[in-house]
Amino acid sequence: MSDVSLSARSKARVTRRPWHALVRWETLLVLAILVDFAINAHASPYFLDPWTLSDVTVSVAEKAVVALAMAFLVMAGEIDISVGGIIALASVSMGLVARAGLPLPLVVASGIATGLLAGCVNGALVTIGRVPSIVATIGTMTLFRGIAYAVLGDGVLKTYPPGFAWLGQGSVAGPVSFELVLFVALAAVAIVLRHATAFGRRVVATGSNPEASRMSGIATDRLRFALFVAVGTAAGLASVLLTSRLGSTRPSIAQGWELEIITMVILGGVAIEGGIGTIPGVVLAAILMGLVTFGLGLLNVPGIVMSVVTGTMLIVVVAVPAALRRYGGGRQ
């Protein structure tokens, strides 16, 4: 958000020494994961059970699916605050389709399509309406969740077709849940897209210098639009998983998820100003957050206190390298 911090970042990149590869972001995340894994295993005798570990993946996979898409959007210099609202809206549309007695594929399709449409609205506001993305999606967040409330009021939708529950609760083989398999597959696709295709380079280029990118022939507006649609679709998919797992729809579903998802992305080392970030980092951050919140859950720590831990984690993880860069990294 400020030019000052951007230049500080680029300076730090120039002065990087060989041993700095050891303190790569991903290495630190792996270390944090190992430490937390050890703490969890020590603190609770139930933690190392494969079925317990399977539960870890289920609770985090839904947010992580959205975080993968959000990572691309943030790398391109934009943000989407409305994902929680999209999940609620998609869940309501699935609930209505299911109540009308339509078959399972249509129920799932309606959820994903709702997410896709919501993404189009966000994309259009930013690329055609020229509204800054944080402002546009604060508006649509209220709008999407507001529509969910308008349709459902204080009611609940819970008539879903048989087989729907498998998506969020079922397992592919033993303790390997469908959600986990889906997340691993999507993460693989995201890694290839980000690190091995021209598309990934274009996303990063657009985030680090939109003007230069546009002048060198990248259709930056079309790219941004596509990324908003991708985030919306991912939120629709997350809504399918979440609704299936809970087995019911309320308009307050996924409240506050946008902040957890964005925390995951930033924790993964994606620069909020855009232009910097890796997908393995985001995947590791998702695993770390899943382990930490689950470990605290095992110790009967209430959810609201976990938010203190995730908030502190976010700040510490960002502040320590920043402090080292500023006070320990020699002359500026």
Partner: peptide, 11 residues
Amino acid sequence: LRIPSIVVTLG
């Protein structure tokens, strides 16, 4: 520390 304000205040 020059951390972007959106990150700080999110935390």
